[in-house]
Design a protein around this nucleic acid. Structure first.
Lengths: 193, 193
DNA sequence: AAGATTCTCCTTGGATCCATTCGTAAGAAG
DNA sequence: CTTCTTACGAATGGATCCAAGGAGAATCTT
């Protein structure tokens, strides 16, 4: 249940339904989701540790400001390193990968891009890459990957080129399905910017 | 207060006072620290998101298993990238850095190494590197750096060579104080392994 | 005697309540 | 009129209470 609350708030932050700087109150979200303050509190705490929210003691939380442009190159480099590493490991256990689930995500991403639904686009874009992380290693890489990619998604720079973004992801998925390590790696690295 | 609880539990995990696989109960820690379950709950949740603990729903938490040797090279590479980046940024705002505080940490690290106190050694080793992160950028890089370095500290490989570790850190601090970017970067990268 | 089923207990997850603290606004004094 | 002080309010942080779920042990049946 806490996971669902966390997912929903994260989605609202990343899709900028909650604009940068918005003050976030626990009780308001609790009423909105129809639950108590406790799970909302936990969710906000986790999102704070992910860097999506900032908290001042006894003062309330607010949506974190966009990261400095100066650290953007570092974030991109880190994400490229993690995801290319995970992709290589994925091919090492290729037979146990559920490619159907990945294709399903790509399909949902296509629908979201066609519908121009930013919230869904961001969600399934993250889901696409998270699939690679999860496929490579269960529960070890995600905790390092999530704070990095969350920060990148804060300024999602593809606001206009949604179908192009979908095409890139579809090409990556196809290269993975074909077992082409070189091509999938190159396409994946080109997709991260 | 929650921060203190989190710090103490993290320290106990990293110093292996709580061995790998130990089942962690909220109420026991609450009694141990003389507080209620609520802040302990928050602390455990945060450490879970850092990857130091693993939780099964309604089943209890336990200290996370050591990371696979296979992902160790990735973790080292990520940490080198973040810390060298931070070091470069540190020199960009060199005048506003509190070098006294850094020297203080080095002094505490020396005492801990001489006393062979693993808990303190790990704590001040992390504090040394965290100082560089904080000096480069307030509150943006830490949330990416912490999950990575925590995972590395889980298998702290310097169990024997403590004074050597201290010498390395002292040399890095001296190079920073002298303003030698090349040397400090080289020493820092050599210290991360 | 071995296995399965059920009962019980232990632990987490969620809800509610109270204290604490920070911010803001209003009022009074200079 | 401006500024400082004080008081009130709102939101978080911590403590306590209740429900839910799973694991383990004991017992019954085959």
């Amino acid at each position: 249940m806490r996971e669902q609350i966390t997912e929903r708030i994260r989605s609202e932050v990343l899709s900028q339904q909650l604009p940068v700087g918005t003050r976030v109150r626990e009780e308001a979200l609790a009423k909105q989701f129809g639950v108590s303050r406790a799970p909302v509190r936990d969710a906000l705490l986790q999102l704070t540790s992910e860097g999506l929210l900032v908290a001042k003691p006894n003062c309330g939380m607010s949506v974190a400001p966009l990261p400095d442009k100066a650290i953007q190159p570092l974030v991109v480099a880190l994400r490229k390193r993690i995801e290319s590493f995970s992709l290589a490991r994925l091919f090492g256990r290729f037979e146990s990968i559920d490619l159907e689930a990945h294709a399903e995500i790509v399909g949902r991403l296509k629908e979201a891009c066609q519908a121009a639904d930013l919230s869904q686009v961001v969600y399934y874009d993250m889901a696409f890459h998270r699939f690679i992380i999860d496929a490579a290693d269960d529960r070890q890489l995600v905790s390092m990957w999530l704070p990095i990619v969350s920060r990148m998604m804060l300024n999602y720079s593809r606001h206009q080129n949604w179908m192009e973004s979908y095409e890139e992801h579809a090409a990556i998925a196809e290269a993975i399905r074909a077992g082409d390590r070189q091509l999938s790696r190159r396409l994946l690295l080109e997709n991260i910017l």
